[in-house]
Design a protein around this nucleic acid. Structure first.
Lengths: 345, 345
DNA sequence: TGTTATTTTGTGTGCGCACACTATTTAATT
DNA sequence: AATTAAATAGTGTGCGCACACAAAATAACA
């Protein structure tokens, strides 16, 4: 391992000068700068991040603004845990992470939580931009404060976020369609069940639906139909609506739920339907995994939410610590889960 | 972050004494030891690994003994790259990795490569134990030298390896069977194609076959048959054997190749067969991925070979640096790859 | 009690880097 | 040529820890 000292000796200058060159701090004559740069390149020098971290004693406060999770919606637990894990891994590098949560159906709580967040004077922000208008307000504030921010899980365009970390939702829907086609007879009809509140909020859901529908464009044997339900958490009502619909539409051979709520549908289906209809949904929440194991659900597509959380902190930290600019889109693998491989995740 | 200095001040002793307690170096009276231990616990102290790494300037030489890769067999490139990547990530923590390769069909080259390896006096070894008898010789040598070793990718029992890093092969075969059943009519026959040299060498292949066969035990509509081919790399011969076999066995609706050579089979099939027979194989080598994309192969099961390499170094390093004993089996996820999600891996 | 052995504790240095501060060289100005 | 301003280069300290070494305190012994 070559050190700054070595370079300095070889260049016949002091360590301080080499340091200035490495960090583009200026105040070095062009001649010596060139010479040192050549040497750095020649020796393939890179700073020892250990020593660097120790010397800097950085203190970056990274704030995360994410939806809260509860027993009804466990999805957001995984990114949160990923964030915590990465925070723990990087704490000795001077990365401190604080999480702020909001109700994902309530823009006011989003704004309020952000107000609390911004008071802590964070150096950077990870956010799940659930509400477009409010996000515009927030980001303009961040931009004037020159606080970098990145989007986690929800990808909305027209912002100056340094990156998006999440999944290619359209492609996710596409894959769901392929798996659906694979597990059902030809021809078949498929039912897409959507919660009302998802229609405006969260464009991941609509992208998944597009991907799902588009997959069948080239094949007329497969048709899709959509069922919108006001409040999926109201089980008696949901049960009623779905089973009624299926009675009227015996042609339905598969149900696609483009959110993490497939387990609700699975638990609402009458047993006849449950046996004869293929269910495909998203996200490896505990409830959904149970459905895989008891075979009520055939496939889950995981967007690796834990990894999303972990990577968002990792990528933001690399940006802060090493000024590494990330790719604009950081897509995680689209993981196909079945009963047999779910245990290894 | 509480430091040794802080603890020392609070305990009214010098930093050296605290250091001795932390590392159980001895030479501390019982009274002060107790007092310091209490304080450490109370403050939930843990050493700053950054500072520790810098001060220690550790130098562990980890040697890897893995099969060589070439254009015919690219599988082993991925673990190698994973090893390199992790080595790079950890080089500032004093981990130096050297790779030694051998011909995976030649025990003599295995032994020879190990001889070269052991001359470099490594602190620990990552090995792919392709040959059981030779591995016994090697490991007994390692044990007398007290050099820790772990097994990568190939899991053989009865050794004192600190861990196995790889895939649950039986389960992998199981999943292949499920996917095969899903993509073929009921009833169907499936053909398992196996290279002769795999039969003795590599029990991953036989475990996959068991998993594949066992999946159909409960269902009499599906039958499997096996075709053993001397040398898969001899394309004209392979082409001949396979197509002849399929002509005689029109009941075959799916071909399962329990190794990374599915691309060879795909390229050998006559076009009629290629269109009507589902192919499922293992490993995301470039050639195999090409087959996914051109739709000659339906599914690949990845054993995440890159991650296997990466994790093996990571786990061994944690063992060396922090004395963290790993789980005996470190199974990687069984990843299902299709045309649509292969790009994100 | 004095001397030596043994146990226990304290001190100093360096790991490689970042940065504030000081010193030197060069350029600009009178 | 003398003085001042600006550009360039060098020095010193600390980050938190590990460990060799020195010092002090205690125990063992004559």
């Amino acid at each position: 391992m070559i050190t700054i000292k070595d370079i300095a000796k070889e260049a016949g200058v002091s360590e301080g000068t080499v340091d200035r060159v490495i960090h583009n701090r200026g105040g070095v004559s062009k001649k010596t700068e060139q010479r040192i740069k050549q040497l750095l390149k020649y020796h393939n020098f890179s700073v020892n991040p250990i020593a660097s971290a120790l010397a800097l004693k950085n203190n970056y406060n990274v704030a995360a603004l994410i939806p809260e999770h509860n027993d009804f919606d466990l999805f957001w637990k995984a990114p949160y845990l990923g964030i915590l894990k990465c925070a723990d891994d990087l704490k000795t590098f001077g990365i401190n992470v604080k999480s702020f949560t909001y109700n994902q159906y309530n823009p006011a709580s989003y704004k309020k939580s952000f107000k609390n967040l911004i008071r802590t004077k964070p150096s950077a922000i990870i956010m799940v931009p659930n509400f477009t208008i409010e996000t515009a307000e927030i980001t303009s504030q961040l931009e004037s404060l020159k606080i970098p921010y990145l989007f986690l899980n929800i990808d909305i365009e027209g912002f100056k976020n340094i990156a998006f970390i999440g999944q290619d939702s359209y492609r996710g829907g596409h894959i769901a369609a392929k798996l659906m086609q694979l597990s059902t007879p030809n021809p078949s009809h498929f039912l897409i069940i959507q919660a009302q509140h998802n229609i405006t909020n969260n464009n991941a859901v609509s992208k998944r639906i597009s991907g799902f529908n588009d997959y069948f464009l080239k094949n007329n044997n497969y048709k899709t139909q959509t069922l919108k339900i006001e409040n999926l958490n109201n089980l008696t009502e949901t049960r009623n609506i779905i089973n009624k619909h299926l009675e009227r539409h015996p042609e339905v051979k598969g149900i696609f739920v483009p959110s993490s709520r497939i387990h609700i549908v699975a638990n609402c289906l009458n047993s006849v339907f449950l046996k004869n209809i293929e269910l495909i949904g998203f996200d490896n929440t505990p409830q959904n995994i149970d459905c895989l194991i008891n075979e009520s659900v055939s496939f889950l597509i995981s967007q690796k939410p834990f990894d999303q959380g972990y990577d968002s902190i990792r990528i933001m930290s690399q940006f802060l610590l090493k000024n590494e600019k990330p790719n604009n889109k950081h897509y995680l693998p689209i993981e196909i889960l079945i009963k047999e491989n779910v245990a290894y995740n």
